[in-house]
Design a protein around this nucleic acid. Sequence first.
DNA 1: AAGTGGTCTAGACCACTTC
DNA 2: AAGTGGTCTAGACCACTTC
Lengths: 239, 239
Amino acid sequence: MMKYETVANDLKGKISGGTYAANSQLPSMGELCDMYGVSKITIKKAMDELEQAGLITRRRGSGSFVKKVIPQSNKLSNYELSSQMMGFCGEHSNTGEKVESVVHDFSVICPPSDVAECLGMDEDQFAYHIIRVRLADGKPLAIEYTYMPIDVIPDLRKKTLYASIYEYIEGDLGLKIDSAHRIVRAVMPTAEECDWLSITEDEPLLEIEQVGYLDDGTPFEYSVSKHPDSYEFRSISSK
Amino acid sequence: MMKYETVANDLKGKISGGTYAANSQLPSMGELCDMYGVSKITIKKAMDELEQAGLITRRRGSGSFVKKVIPQSNKLSNYELSSQMMGFCGEHSNTGEKVESVVHDFSVICPPSDVAECLGMDEDQFAYHIIRVRLADGKPLAIEYTYMPIDVIPDLRKKTLYASIYEYIEGDLGLKIDSAHRIVRAVMPTAEECDWLSITEDEPLLEIEQVGYLDDGTPFEYSVSKHPDSYEFRSISSK
DNA sequence: AAGTGGTCTAGACCACTTC
DNA sequence: AAGTGGTCTAGACCACTTC
């Protein structure tokens, strides 16, 4: 076993064991070098592993932080491995298409307990509840059901929903979006969803359940998006 | 722009431009150090990028090789980014479940032209065609439609299909499976598939189209698998 | 100014493949 | 034995954040 693996495994154990609690800061790379008696690059590589596994986030100039992590599903399903994926960019158009939104709900509520748990909220705390249909060049591409804690993303206005919430978060609020944990499924649309997406009831949808994290490890978004037909989800697996 | 990015971009250009052709070997790390005037770790990091992007595979002791890459879909779909995913382990049981297979077809044919293209085959070359239903503890978890070139995976027998083809490839043939490129969609089952999976016609399936690569960059498998209900596809995206 | 993580070097040593 | 990629070091320097 390589040194970086030894360090990574030890740190994983200490995170799941609670020595390093959710949202807490890890020792700096220099301190970890001393603690494990290895060089900085070895620590770096070990922390790369933790980041890939979705356990921590890192901020240059600030430090590394333990993520508040998704509750594990108890489905005996996915016998293929959990996975790691790069390329998070919200849902900006990257092909010059014109992206619009139709807002079907925008309210502040106490989220269901499973959503609250994903977001690290108490059950009596408030979150925005947003239902949007996203269109590219007038064609419906997705329905998004989103919850965001009001104290993590303050002062969200309806106007922002027609543009990009992510730009509001990164631009106006000066926060940094770091990563997302996703689960993909196939589902059938409801009657309402057929209406919103202009599809028939026999067209399946690709559902993506997602928890988004800021760069300090705080979950800022729980969302379920459902995509018709033309949507594909691509990935490259290695090793 | 960091040095490793400069190197990575240059190499990407030379791969897509044909200077380094599919299945050819890249210069060694030492040679690349000299060519770019940078240290070995910088070259390593640049090549990590290429590997993540699915462009090359690397073999300790042998060298780095350009992959024969998936033809790009011309769908204007997935406006989220293409992605990178770790954790390829065939479909072994990792939870102690008993995995079985029902073989519905096992023949040798000339594959359709799009499949041949993915596998880097001429249209008049032969491939195995396999249809299997995979069961875990007696419960149907997937249908797999698989093509494998007979000259890449020689002497495949029906007996192997009831166990793990991957174990045959890695164990008996001594080849090494390196990576897979995947596309995920939601689809409806055919009548035949409902029968095989013991589901009704209104249950959507998660479809995973996949090209598998050996560690020398050779595509060895084109497969489409379709999963009912209980299957989930997980990923963690970063940055 | 002090502290953080990120990049980079030059070189050592190792694991593995090929001949 | 020679060549490949992978790990690791000790230290320099940089970009960025926090105070």
